[in-house]
Amino acid sequence: MDVIYYYCYLFYKKILKEDEPHALTVWALGAGEGFFVGSIINIFLIRFFCFKMDKWLMIGISVLFLLINYFYFFKSKRSLRIIKEKPLFFGSSKISKILTIAFFVVIISSMFWGAIYAKYLLQTYCR
């Protein structure tokens, strides 16, 4: 997660030139992880229990991940250490960028494929 945090931070700092890149990085990671985990839990609940999660529970999961990331990166000052260290996957900047982009593609796409697959499961298994 350190490498993904670092490259997300660089995106907000250098490309978008935001005033608070640390805060936006924590928000992006927390919300993305929350949506992904919420989609996986929703699919599991529909498949095995025919129970669809309420939107407020999904939002609650995202808020939980926001808080976890806030305390893990921001409050503990870990984010400052990450920026100083400039971590890389396998010692390669190119691989780090590719894996970070892939991480966000999977996270963001889960909002779409999660809903589509959940609807399919509801129609197939929960008649």
Rank of each mutant, 00 (worst) to 15 (best):
111 M>W: 04
106 V>H: 06
60 G>Q: 13
94 K>C: 03
126 C>T: 07
31 A>R: 08
33 E>G: 07
34 G>K: 09
43 I>A: 12
113 W>L: 10
53 M>W: 01
111 M>K: 03
73 F>V: 04
65 F>M: 15
30 G>Y: 04
91 G>E: 08
49 F>V: 03
127 R>K: 14
91 G>M: 11
87 P>I: 03
58 M>W: 05
96 S>K: 11
67 L>G: 12
96 S>W: 14
9 Y>P: 13
63 V>K: 00
29 L>Y: 12
70 Y>V: 06
15 I>L: 12
109 S>H: 00
51 F>D: 06
91 G>A: 10
103 F>E: 02
61 I>W: 06
26 V>Q: 03
30 G>K: 01
29 L>W: 04
21 P>C: 08
7 Y>D: 09
57 L>H: 03
49 F>G: 01
44 F>Y: 15
91 G>C: 13
107 I>P: 13
29 L>R: 04
53 M>K: 04
16 L>M: 14
71 F>A: 00
104 F>A: 08
98 I>F: 11
50 C>T: 05
83 I>E: 10
95 I>T: 11
93 S>W: 09
71 F>W: 00
74 F>H: 07
14 K>I: 10
88 L>S: 01
79 S>I: 07
23 A>Y: 12
2 D>R: 10
55 K>H: 02
11 F>I: 13
114 G>E: 07
15 I>H: 05
10 L>H: 09
20 E>A: 05
18 E>L: 05
119 K>T: 09
68 I>C: 04
61 I>Q: 02
108 I>N: 04
116 I>G: 01
114 G>F: 05
63 V>W: 02
61 I>R: 01
81 R>V: 11
48 F>H: 10
90 F>H: 05
13 K>P: 08
104 F>G: 11
27 W>I: 15
51 F>M: 02
67 L>W: 06
36 F>L: 15
106 V>Y: 03
22 H>Y: 07
108 I>H: 04
126 C>D: 03
89 F>E: 02
41 I>T: 08
83 I>Y: 04
63 V>T: 08
88 L>I: 04
74 F>D: 06
22 H>D: 12
106 V>W: 01
84 K>A: 12
87 P>N: 13
33 E>V: 12
14 K>H: 08
120 Y>H: 09
70 Y>Q: 08
92 S>D: 15
1 M>P: 14
26 V>P: 02
8 C>F: 00
112 F>A: 03
54 D>I: 01
25 T>H: 13
118 A>L: 08
54 D>G: 14
